[in-house]
Structures are given as structure tokens and as C-alpha cells.
Amino acid sequence: MYSIVGGSGFIGSRLCGRLLGGNKKFTIVDKAPSAMYPNNSVIADVRDLKSLKEALVGSCAIVNLAAEHRDDVSPKSLYDEVNVEGALNICKTARENSVNKIIFTSSVAVYGFAPLGTGEDGDINPFNDYGRTKWEAETIFRSWQAESPNDRTLVIVRPTVVFGERNRGNVYNLLRQIASGRFLMIGNGNNRKSMAYVENVAAFIEYTLSFGPGLYTYNYIDKPDFDMNTLVRSCKKKLTGKDGLGLRLPKWFGLCVGYGFDLLAAVTGKKFSVSSIRVKKFCADSMYSTSIEKTTFKPPVELGAAIDKTLQFEFIEDNSTGPVFFSE
């Protein structure tokens, strides 16, 4: 029995769909029941050791997808409570229940604003609490695996930004703005972005469930890496039939707007879709390399086709019913 911790979310729902299609038994362990697979759900919180231990009885492998990941989490202590203390609780439970395999979804956020082409051996330099706590969680899981390296399997997967149907994160917000005709390019648009399609990430996690004892770390990226000008232009053409980028704002102006919304959020307590950190992330290069290329894994969906599928589902067809998932 596979235990998918945090399996009610975006990646978890896709992973469970793949496991179900392969007739593999799984339990979704989450603080909220799965909207897509409620019959497989067990309610537990990674912050609650007692409920977690009860939920993971009989597990042969744990996939940990649970995380606080948004840029605007409040209070900020939730990053440590969920990402770090949650990792400690999962390791305690794995020891007690003799579970020897853990797959952990970390993030390329552990590298911070990384040099182009950063691989799994890149310098760890997170710039926010999310990246920091993901790295701290990685060290906790590494310590667990090192206690019995010949028996325990730890796979750390560091995805770049994940997109796909039903996601309501930053990529969706970008596509929605393009579809509405209100999109404004910020910066020169030459910065490159590594992206990951949710179905491919889920397929890779499923692939790693067969790994034997050892420690494995992989960035997850779907190639090629598009620069923002190319990405926006191709999406705009598919959605509106128009070519070109439209109005462009200099980066400094976009940052000023972002800082203004930061101040407004601090004063009002409200959350806004625009912030200085999101402007910085939009304008930054985030292009990574991955050693997955050295494995036999082949992503089921090519990146260009994945973007087209997402655009078709979200903005051309009517798929307004069904669950949606909110993330960065």
C-alpha cells in the first residue's frame, strides 16, 4: 500500500490517477479529503504525529507531497510547522512502522536565484522561507536514510514551476491574463523559464517507486526551456490568433508596482495577485538541468503539447465544473 501524504492536492491527484490506472493500491493521507478520490482518503495532518502514525499503518512506501508553498503564507511559522516539523513526523512514523522507502517532493527553490543550467549539485541558496524549509526538510530525510543506507530508499524530487489543467498558480494567472487581452510584459522577456507539466511530474514520481535502496536526488524539468517572449507569443497566438507581445513595461516600474501592492497588503491584511517577489520571479531566469536524462524515464507528454492541452482545457473548452487546485 502506497501512502500519498498531501495526495489531495494538484500533483497528488494526478499521481493517484496514475496509480489507480495501474491497479496499484494507495491511500491519500491529507488534512482534507480528496475531491477526486474520496474513498481512498484518510484524514491526518503532518503536524499531528498521532494521526499520522495511525494513517500510515500498513504502508510500504511514503510519497510526501504535503507542503506550505505559497508566497503569501500567513503566519510564516506555517512553513516550519508543515515543511520541517512535518518531515520530522514522517521520519518518526516511518521508523515506527518499518517503512523503508520515502519519495519527497522538494523544490528548485532550494537554489534561490540560481545560475543558468543549475543541476542537482548546485549551490543551496534559498531566498525565501519556502526554499529554506524545503532544504531543511531534505536534510531531515537524508538523515533518516543514512541511518540504514543499505535498507532505506530516499528519492528527492525538486520540480521547477508545475503547471497543468485545473491548477490555479502563477502559470495559470499568466495564461489567464494573456487570454483576457490585459497582459503586460515586464522586462525584456529574454529570461528563460524551466517548466514542468503535472502529468509528467506524477509519472516520474510513479517511476521512482521502483527504486531500490539508496539516496537519489533529481531536478524535474520538461525541456526545452522557453524564454518569456517565446512563451507569451505562442500562447497569445493560440488563444487570440494575434501575434506579437503588446505593451511592455520596464522591470523597475513593475517592481515599484509590486512594492506598492506589498505595502497595501501589509496595511489592509488582504492578499493580492501582484507583489514584488512575484515580479522578481517573473523577470528572473530560472533554467535548470537534470540528471533524469541519464535514467530510462521518458515523460509521457512533450512540453509544447502540454502547454497546448492546458490552454485548450482552461480557455477554449468549457471545463468550469470539477475541482481546482491553488498553488504558486
Score class of each variant (00 low, 15 high):
residue 4 I to K: 04
residue 7 G to E: 04
residue 7 G to V: 06
residue 14 R to V: 02
residue 14 R to N: 11
residue 15 L to D: 01
residue 33 P to I: 04
residue 44 A to C: 10
residue 45 D to L: 05
residue 48 D to I: 06
residue 52 L to T: 08
residue 53 K to S: 12
residue 61 A to V: 11
residue 62 I to H: 07
residue 64 N to M: 14
residue 73 V to M: 05
residue 78 L to Y: 10
residue 81 E to Y: 09
residue 83 N to V: 03
residue 86 G to M: 09
residue 94 A to D: 15
residue 99 V to M: 10
residue 103 I to C: 05
residue 105 T to C: 11
residue 106 S to M: 01
residue 109 A to I: 00
residue 111 Y to M: 03
residue 113 F to P: 07
residue 117 G to M: 02
residue 118 T to H: 01
residue 121 D to S: 08
residue 122 G to Q: 01
residue 128 N to S: 12
residue 139 T to M: 06
residue 141 F to I: 03
residue 148 S to L: 13
residue 151 D to R: 15
residue 167 N to A: 15
residue 167 N to F: 11
residue 184 L to G: 03
residue 184 L to I: 12
residue 187 G to D: 14
residue 188 N to K: 11
residue 192 R to Y: 15
residue 196 A to S: 15
residue 199 E to C: 12
residue 203 A to V: 08
residue 204 F to A: 05
residue 213 P to E: 12
residue 220 Y to F: 13
residue 225 D to V: 13
residue 232 V to L: 05
residue 234 S to E: 08
residue 243 D to A: 13
residue 247 L to W: 14
residue 248 R to E: 12
residue 249 L to P: 07
residue 251 K to L: 15
residue 251 K to D: 11
residue 252 W to M: 09
residue 262 D to R: 09
residue 267 V to E: 07
residue 268 T to V: 03
residue 271 K to Y: 03
residue 274 V to H: 10
residue 275 S to Y: 01
residue 275 S to A: 10
residue 280 K to H: 04
residue 281 K to S: 04
residue 283 C to H: 09
residue 284 A to I: 06
residue 289 S to G: 13
residue 297 F to G: 09
residue 302 E to I: 15
residue 304 G to Y: 10
residue 309 K to N: 14
residue 317 E to Y: 11
residue 317 E to S: 09
residue 322 G to E: 09
residue 323 P to D: 12
residue 324 V to G: 07
residue 327 S to Q: 13
